[in-house]
């Protein structure tokens, strides 16, 4: 078991049937789990449903958690899987936007205020660009580039092949880069063809 995992003691107690310990685990992690769920689903109501389902699955499957990864890593995999199932069931609304009024709490404050403001603005634009991505691309880039999940785990939880996960990641990064940091001659701008065929 990873001794650096602050939830390890609670997990051990919860595995022994200590319901108060599991409740403490929920209290300690539910905001982060909700954040992931919201980033994956793009909808507050869906995210809340996904979070409840995720903890239910975690509660029922706690005996199978071996402690070879952090509890949150295991929980995030469950959340990714639940979100995929949930989005698969959902055939309604296609307005997958992160709620504009969602309160953001930076858990790593500090540093130069001007740089912080600039970084905050960039993060805001990134959140907007993520929300505009198709859900399938968004899920892969969020799990890989925000939560550092390995390609294999992403593929397993989303029910796709590893190569498909890599292709989606490639497309997602390219779309995000084009939106956030467009270069001269990007699609839609004059002179694109000439610039993109420069040979070395």
């Amino acid at each position: 078991m990873h001794t650096e995992d602050p939830t390890a003691v609670l997990v051990a107690a919860a595995r022994q049937g200590d319901e108060a310990a599991f409740e403490a685990l929920v209290r300690a992690t539910y905001a982060q789990t909700y954040t992931l769920a919201l980033r994956l689903t793009g909808d507050e109501e869906d995210a809340s449903d996904v979070v409840q389902e995720s903890y239910l699955r975690a509660y029922k499957g706690l005996a199978r958690f071996r402690g070879d990864a952090q509890f949150t890593t295991w929980l995030y995999r469950i959340t990714a899987n639940c979100a995929t199932t949930h989005l698969g069931r959902r055939h309604r609304r296609r307005t997958d936007h992160l709620a504009d009024d969602a309160t953001v709490v930076d858990r790593d404050p500090g540093g130069d205020p001007a740089a912080q403001a600039e970084a905050g603005a960039l993060r805001g634009r990134l959140e907007g660009a993520l929300a505009e991505l198709p859900p399938k691309l968004r899920a892969v880039v969020v799990l890989r580039d925000v939560y550092d999940m390995p390609h294999e785990a992403i593929a397993a939880e989303l029910g796709i092949s590893v190569s498909a996960a890599k292709v989606r990641l490639h497309r997602a990064r390219r779309k995000l880069r084009e939106v956030l940091f467009p270069l001269p001659g990007e699609p839609g701008e004059p002179g694109d063809h000439e610039e993109r065929t420069h040979a070395m």
Binding site: L38, S48, Q52, V104, V105, A119, R173
Partner: peptide, 30 residues
């Protein structure tokens, strides 16, 4: 691209505040 990845990594430290009733709902479900 590297700047994009750094910014994406930076999102890891952010927590979006859930609706006030979510914790109670989770505990009730459990």
């Amino acid at each position: 691209y590297r700047r994009l990845l750094r910014t994406l990594h930076g999102l890891r430290t952010e927590v979006l505040e859930p609706a006030p009733g979510l914790l109670a709902d989770i505990l009730a479900t459990l």
